[in-house]
Design a protein around this nucleic acid. Structure first.
Length: 493
DNA sequence: CAAAAGGAGTTTG
DNA sequence: CAAACTCCTTTTG
């Protein structure tokens, strides 16, 4: 249902030679499609990409900000933006945000440093490789760093939200704060950029299409699942027209594949419903499918059932199976996504509540809750996908969403995405389950958003954590440190 | 002063 | 009813 992972398009013909095997595999698989190829973001193991050879990672780093910033100026001159932004954010991207950005003076940065989309072929070729790095440990693609860089850029707005922890985490003032809405505006700008590119230059090889698909800032910041694109209205019609068939094509393929394997292995399509034995069957099958070396002691390595397996981070997969962990993790993500999509379709048929695509984030009302901080709208929230308690969860049709997540699970989810949440919470000693909350205000906010508790603060969150001492879910660290906690064993594998 | 700690009443799913 | 949420007081570094 609520899935953070995005589908991406790419063009096989332009793929760097050094790209991962998964990447190629996906491409080969679909070579015959009308689109040159497509692949799943989760299949792109960024860790397999060479860090500094082959791909100019620095271009990635600066590409995202560059486009956005430039488009900010184009927008003023070409207001073809009337029909944006998308429906469920329209209220929030209201006067405060747009006005604050319109006042920004034209940028004075050197042009060369921020190549435009029409710049040199090499640059534009790589410019489109903005992967979803939520599940992949690729520092150069760290979403938060991109975000930060955006703020670091010369023409940064005066009140740019450079993550300064608020001096007080008081719950009273939250409704009064009126910070600018970078998130919404960014999305808004991105969409404009996309459309302008489409209108202005018809690029070969579906380049425009690729760029559209690769730009997921909108979905991330608005906490939308990929297919919530339907909620776009008006001017995006042409983008959407290109977009949807490919996504559904990809998902359908994934589903068909999953169907077949499910039938063969006699397992549920929902990874969360697998028993430990079924997990092993699936792992073996997937290893074989990807022609990865078989693992002898699979049962010892993976004692989890499906629900617990779904909680494991990519790092954990990699740690256990250096050779194939990433692939398995990525494939599991695809399965989860395929199942979630199917579930979503079923639910949509019965209860077409468009806003349910959002979770942990309420569509802002017109007058209040102008979503005070865009920072929290970012992937941090997205990656923190609600995951069922390891112990239970049936094949459940009732997958209403995130409301039942426990705090400890949520924290683990945040911890599982250090690229995104590393500035807010991170492992101190992963093997011992010791972690540190680096930004208490932020973590509390994320938790509050997830639980739909706008008044959440660190005081309350920490109170809940302290309850875990009694329950044996967490314990105090030996040498007690501020903001440092430790999971107890069963809750930390 | 922020955070830790924990008591106690209340809310929520 | 469990798990949080909320509010509060006291202690700690």
């Amino acid at each position: 249902m609520e899935y953070e992972k995005m589908l991406y398009l790419t063009n096989a013909s332009e793929m760097p030679h050094s790209c991962s095997t998964q990447f190629k595999l996906a491409a080969e698989q679909f070579q015959t499609d009308s689109y040159a190829a497509y692949a799943y973001a989760d299949n792109f193991d960024l860790s397999l990409l060479p860090e500094d050879a082959g791909i100019p990672t620095t271009v990635y780093q600066y590409n995202a900000p560059q486009i956005k910033v430039e488009s900010a100026w184009e927008i003023q001159e070409q207001p073809l933006s009337a029909s944006y932004p998308p429906a469920n954010s329209s209220s929030s991207s209201s006067s405060s945000s747009s006005s604050s950005h319109q006042l920004i003076p034209p940028p004075a940065y050197p042009h060369s440093a921020y190549p435009s989309p029409q710049s040199s072929p090499q640059q534009s070729e790589f410019a489109s490789f903005k992967y979803d790095c939520l599940s992949s440990p690729c520092p150069s693609l760290d979403a938060s760093s991109i975000k930060q860089e955006l703020h670091i850029l010369p023409p940064s707005p005066p009140e740019s939200n450079c993550e300064t922890p608020s001096p007080r985490s008081d719950s009273n003032s939250s409704s009064i704060k009126a910070e600018p809405l970078d998130a919404e505006l960014d999305s808004y700008l991105d969409l404009n950029t996309l459309q302008q590119q489409q209108l202005l230059d018809i690029k070969p090889n579906h380049q425009v299409l690729r760029e559209c698909l690769e730009d997921t800032t909108f979905q991330r910041k608005h906490n939308l699942k990929p297919l919530a694109l339907e909620s776009f209205i008006g001017g995006l019609a042409e983008v959407r027209g290109d977009f949807e068939p490919v996504i559904s094509l990809a998902l359908e393929h994934a589903k068909r594949e999953a169907d077949a394997i499910c039938a063969q292995l006699q397992i549920s399509q929902d990874p969360n419903a697998w028993t430990a034995a079924q997990v092993h069957a699936w792992l073996r099958s997937t290893l074989a499918q990807f022609k990865l070396p078989p693992v002898d002691n699979l049962e010892l390595q993976f004692s989890e059932d499906g629900a617990a397996l779904a909680l494991l981070s990519e790092e954990e997969f990699q740690r256990r199976l250096p050779e194939s962990g990433s692939t398995l993790h990525a494939q599991l993500e695809i399965w989860k996504m395929a199942y979630a999509d199917q579930l979503g379709n079923e639910m949509e048929a019965t209860a077409p509540a468009a806003n349910d695509m959002l979770w942990g984030y309420q569509a802002p009302n017109v007058e209040q809750d102008e979503s005070e901080d865009d920072e929290d709208m970012e992937p941090a929230v997205l990656i923190a996908t609600p995951t069922p308690a390891p112990a239970k969860r049936s094949g459940g049709t009732r997958n209403g969403g995130s409301s039942h997540i426990h705090l400890w699970q949520f924290l683990k989810e945040l911890l599982a995405a250090p690229q995104v949440n590393g500035t807010a919470i991170r492992w101190i000693d992963r093997s011992k389950g010791i972690f540190k909350i680096e930004d208490s205000v932020r973590v509390a906010k994320l938790w509050g958003r997830r639980k739909n508790r706008p008044a959440m603060n660190y005081d309350k969150l920490s109170r809940s954590i302290r309850q875990y001492y009694k329950k044996g879910i967490m314990k105090k660290t030996e040498r007690s440190q501020r903001l440092v906690y430790q999971f107890c064993q069963p809750y930390h594998q």
